[in-house]
C-alpha cells in the first residue's frame, strides 16, 4: 500500500464485461470517464456528472451505481458490467429487446442507464429489498408498475419514455426475468 501521487498516472486494472484492462490513469478519473474516454466504451452516458440523472448507471458486482460519482481507481477488485456487456445490436439481451419492442426510449441517451438500472433493480427486488412504497418485495408475487416507477426514479428521461420504460421492464420481469 502506498500513495499514488497527485496528477501522476496510476497503473490499474479494471475488469469490464469479463475483460481485464490494464490502464494508466490519473487518480481523478471517474469510473464513467475511464469507461468512456479511456476504454471507449461509450454506451455508458454522461448526463449530469453529479448523480442527478442516472444516465451513467453501470453494474458493479451486480449492483447498480452511478459511475460518475466513483473513481476508477476504487474499482480494481470489482467486476463491472456496462450496457455493452449485456448484449449487442445484433444479439440483444431480452431487456434490450423489450425496450425496442415497447419503444422505451426516444433519443436513446438515457437508455443504457435505464437498462442497467433495471437489471440491478430487479435483482434488488428478487432479494426482497424494500422500497419507499413499503416492505412488499418478499410478499408480492411479481413486481408491479408502481414499484418499478419508484425504484427507477433515479433514471431521468427527458423524452419522457417513462410509461413505456415501465412497460418494457414489466414485460421483461414477467416473461424473461429468470434469464437475468
Amino acid at each position: 500500500m502506498s500513495w499514488i501521487e497527485a496528477d501522476s498516472g496510476a497503473a490499474l486494472t479494471l475488469s469490464v464485461n469479463g475483460m481485464r484492462h490494464d490502464l494508466k490513469l490519473d487518480a481523478r478519473v471517474t469510473l464513467l470517464d475511464a469507461l468512456r474516454e479511456h476504454l471507449q466504451l461509450t454506451g455508458t452516458k454522461k448526463g449530469c456528472d453529479h448523480g442527478q440523472c442516472g444516465a451513467c448507471t453501470v453494474l458493479v458486482n451486480g449492483r447498480r451505481i452511478n459511475s460518475c460519482l466513483s473513481l476508477a481507481v476504487m474499482h480494481q477488485a470489482d467486476e463491472i458490467t456496462t450496457i455493452e456487456g449485456l448484449g449487442t445490436a445484433e444479439n440483444l439481451h431480452p431487456l434490450q429487446a423489450a425496450f425496442v419492442a415497447k419503444d422505451g426510449f426516444q433519443c436513446g441517451y438515457c437508455t443504457s442507464g435505464q437498462i442497467c438500472s433495471a437489471i440491478g433493480m430487479l435483482g434488488e427486488w428478487r432479494e426482497g429489498w424494500p422500497s419507499h412504497l413499503g416492505d412488499r418485495a418478499d410478499a408480492a408475487p411479481a413486481i408491479d408498475a408502481a414499484e418499478i416507477r419508484e425504484r427507477m426514479s433515479g433514471n431521468l428521461c427527458r423524452c419522457a419514455a417513462y410509461p413505456r420504460i415501465v412497460e418494457a421492464i414489466e414485460h421483461y420481469a414477467t416473461h424473461e426475468g429468470a434469464d437475468a
Binding site: 461509450t42 449485456l86 445490436a89 434490450q96 429487446a97 436513446g108
Partner: peptide, 21 residues
Amino acid sequence: IARIDGPRKVSGAARYAAEHF
C-alpha cells in the same frame, strides 16, 4: 413499427457527439 435505430441505441452502439476519438 419499432425504431430501426433501436438496437443500436439500446446496446450503446449509437455514437453521440462526444463519443468520437
